[in-house]
């Protein structure tokens, strides 16, 4: 069975998204480091059954603690069977999330970006040009609010469109956006 992996920095709402997407019950809290091991469940996307995995939060693919190690190892092992990596980014701290996104792109994972907590970003007067970000990265980008479920339907519909891209292409597209 193909896998869908939920990846992202700590405390960006991966587990909330996981319970929303799979209906599985997992412990969710508002502090980093709640999930220290991966959790698996099933979900259906367009009639096909997938295994969805909630990974511990990590800042990069070079692990610093044991929970991050779990995440990186899982990513490595699951690579051949991965249908999509849902890269969850905290919309109020895009930069930190993008670092991990780039690493995922470099390693050739098929990525879909979920800009989560977009409500908090709006409260903080942070505007993100989603279309432009999508153009630059070359992967689908969806704004979501996992706690209320907003945007998750769109996110699921984009899972099929996740394709690997490469970093040189990202650089090229970035230069084009400059002009």
């Amino acid at each position: 069975m193909k896998k869908i992996l939920l990846v992202g920095n700590p405390n960006v709402g991966k587990s909330v998204m996981f319970s929303r997407l799979s209906g599985a019950r997992v412990v969710v809290s508002n502090y980093p480091g709640t999930t220290v091991d991966y959790t698996k469940s099933r979900m259906r996307v367009e009639g096909k059954e997938y295994e969805i995995v909630d990974l511990p939060g990590t800042f990069s693919l070079e692990p610093k603690d044991k929970a991050e190690e779990v995440a990186c190892k899982m990513l490595e092992e699951a690579k051949p069977h991965t249908a999509a990596v849902i890269d969850v980014i905290d919309a109020t701290a895009v930069e930190r999330g993008l670092y991990l996104t780039l690493e995922l792109i470099e390693r050739g994972y098929p990525v879909v970006v979920a800009l989560n907590m977009s409500d908090a970003a709006r409260d903080r007067k942070i505007k993100i040009d989603v279309k432009k970000l999508e153009r630059i990265l070359g992967v689908p980008v969806v704004e979501t609010i996992a706690t209320t479920g907003a945007g998750l339907k769109e996110l699921v519909s984009k899972i099929g469109k996740a394709k690997p891209t490469d970093i040189e292409a990202v650089k090229r597209r970035l230069r084009r956006e400059k002009k």
């Binding site: 895009v94 993008l98 670092y99 007067k125 942070i126 970035l174 400059k178």
Partner: peptide
């Protein structure tokens, strides 16, 4: 690269 990207897509209001 992250910096370059965020400069183009993120707009911080007051």
């Amino acid at each position: 690269l992250v910096d370059e990207i965020s400069k183009r897509v993120v707009l911080r209001g007051k």
